[in-house]
Design a protein around this nucleic acid. Structure first.
Lengths: 242, 242
DNA sequence: GCAAAAGTGTTAATCTTACACCCATGC
DNA sequence: GCATGGGTGTAAGATTAACACTTTTGC
């Protein structure tokens, strides 16, 4: 069930009928970022609303009466990607009167970082597809605005917090990491300065392994120190300062 | 009408009855910061809920079906303080299942910066009072968490964006400005370095006036350049980068 | 004249940027 | 042996931090 689909099951309506003076819908929308082919991508679904014929939208759903916001976005992510150990962070809420053609729906936007190559990820089914951030001109609802807001937030956080490792496989080379930074920041980085800066942050462990199957000299593989993994998402368990 | 008061007028229920499958309440809460007596303060009201006997809460209200989130928080601010030209910024949304004792209410938190001394501000009536941030141990609902989240956001923004001038009268001395920074950041700053840094940002105009009625050598009065005033609040009109 | 804050520069330390060469591997 | 990226250090420039004395005013 997506934000596009406003029906709620009868049982759920019963359970919350004592609150019938509450009449604004609330949803979460997830900007699910992935990284592949040296390109930052976002997971989109074809909109099934007439109003948005031919447009794609973010993955979202109404918040259920018995789940909190973080739980709702985790649920969407789990349902859509099969992953349940991903990075998720609330970014901003959007509540324009006309943002949803079927009625008043306020949405809380999250961004999420997943490893596209992760074998547990089942995406090809459904109508889900990864889209290059660069090429996205227009989305259903106000989802382009939401995407841009989340992209900006990601850019702000990327140099200060060890978040983007969630976009990479567990072990990666420094070249891969640098290319990812470049894709997110939209600029080229000096290799020596980049490596110095990363070394200074002390986020990584040098595994003793080397890249394989590269058509050039293989680089060392690194991984994120375990204390930086799975940084908490909610304000109850606030983002780790590093 | 505050978040504490969940009743909606009948006319409003009628208008939105076609959305009766939406059953979660949505409110906004405003962390209204002020500055007085070298101390950062927040505007609170005594909670009228039994559950929170003796506790204070932030100013908030349910979002009306015909207003967007920014409008709702402006309305609350206007109603409560009489001011309508204040700085307002959305910070985070909170949606724990048990955060409101009367039912499911998700709230969008804003912070706001106002000049306490502004003569238009009528606060003494009602049960509104300014409380020193330092001394607040516990608030109704999850409002202490909301306050802490907004204080942290304010701290993050204060050195990068010209926001805190909204806490000061139009004309102020550099000493007053430095004391305000110190109150927000919770640390002492070197006067010479502070003045150098502020000069570098080029936010201020040197009025030709001097402080009056100070028991020491008067300082020059400065004011914020007009292009930095009233920085926009919503994601539709995003925060000015400076 | 004393108390209080205004106003103002220099130096050292740190961080950031720019930049070039040899090395290991696959083909 | 050639193409590709791996791996490494240094010097100049920019930013930040530490620090003290003279001046102006109110009382």
């Amino acid at each position: 069930m997506t934000e596009n689909d406003l029906r709620l099951k009868t049982a759920e309506i019963e359970k919350i009928s004592h609150l019938d003076y509450f009449n604004i819908g609330i949803s979460v929308d997830c900007v699910i970022f992935g990284y592949d082919d040296k390109d930052l991508k976002v997971l989109l679904i074809k909109s099934d609303l007439e109003e948005f014929e031919g447009l794609y939208s973010l993955l979202g759903d109404l918040v259920r009466p018995d789940e909190d916001l973080d739980t709702a976005s985790y649920r969407i992510l789990k349902e859509r990607t099969g992953l349940d150990d991903v990075y998720l962070e609330q970014v901003h809420s959007f509540g324009s009167l006309d943002r949803h053609p079927s009625g008043r729906v306020i949405t809380v936007a999250y961004y999420s970082l997943v490893d596209i190559k992760n074998h547990r990820l089942r995406v090809d089914s459904n109508e889900l597809h990864w889209h290059s951030i660069q090429t996205i001109k227009n989305l259903a609802f106000d989802h382009k605005l939401i995407l841009d807001t989340c992209s900006a937030r990601l850019q702000e956080q990327v140099m200060d917090y060890p978040v983007i490792f969630n976009l990479l496989p567990e072990k990666f080379s420094l070249r891969e990491l640098q290319e990812l930074y470049e894709a997110i920041l939209g600029l080229e980085l000096d290799r020596r300065n980049f490596r110095k800066k990363i070394a200074l942050k002390d986020w990584l462990i040098d595994t003793e392994e080397m890249e394989e199957n590269v058509p050039h000299r293989p680089g060392k593989l690194h991984k994120l120190k375990s204390e930086y993994k799975k940084i908490a998402v909610s304000k109850q368990g606030v983002l780790n300062p590093v």
